[in-house]
Amino acid sequence: MTDVLASEWLKLRSVRSTWYILGLVALAVPLVAFLTLQGVNGWDGLPPGRRARFQAPPMEQVLLPLVQLCMGVLAVLAIASEYATGMIRTTLAAVPRRRTVLGGKAVITAGIALLGGLLFLFGAFAVSRAIVGDRPMSPGYTTPPEAEVPMLLASGLSVAVVALVGLGLGAVTRSAAGAIVAVSGLLFVLPVLAGLLPGPWSGRVGSVLPTNLAGQLVDHPSAVGDLPPLGALGLLVAYAVAALGAGTAVLARRDA
């Protein structure tokens, strides 16, 4: 397994797309700084009486979907680019244990997604808090920083889960376009659709979507949905396991 891990790490390191994607994630931090500065300027320009209406969402959460999308694409490419180029046959001839191949890719991409996600989240959090200073901009900037650490960690975990879902969907669809669309459907379209449902279903469906699980996992005040933390954790794990399981089944059964 360590050989496969090392090999997959080399594969990821040696293509340009990986570095473009990680570059984009790194750029998200200055983007957070820019957006926060705009927000602070807006706040400072308001008469005190109107400041209470000012909506200031935590900026690392605003850009989290971008980072999730980036890491999802990174993971999709880890498998779909092998199918696109035919490299998969070379790979499977070198390592015929197909589960091990997918496992190796899963460990590497989830690791990068978790690490990159956490670096972004903590970096963006620190930068935006530093820019806001002691302005009581609600709801994102009124809590003590240490109270936000669980939410940041949980959000990092969600980035890793999105990457694993991307990898699994990539193995199932064998197509970069298909898998990226599926991941963005999960990240962006389903939440909107859930919001359109009437009555209790809107909340029920919304609470099980991967985008809303991090908040419920740490019972954050901004959380959408009312799952218990363990339930949210179980669902996060279930998303990853389901996608990887489907990917493994398809990879193991189909001719390469």
Partner: peptide, 28 residues
């Protein structure tokens, strides 16, 4: 010229950029 790159860009235009826009202060 890259499927993955272009699909991801279109997804960003459709779903990610609007989120930044919402986070900008009024009137931006």
């Amino acid at each position: 010229r890259s499927t993955a790159g272009t699909v991801a860009s279109v997804v960003a235009l459709l779903y990610v950029v609007p989120r930044f826009a919402v986070a900008l202060p009024d009137p931006w």
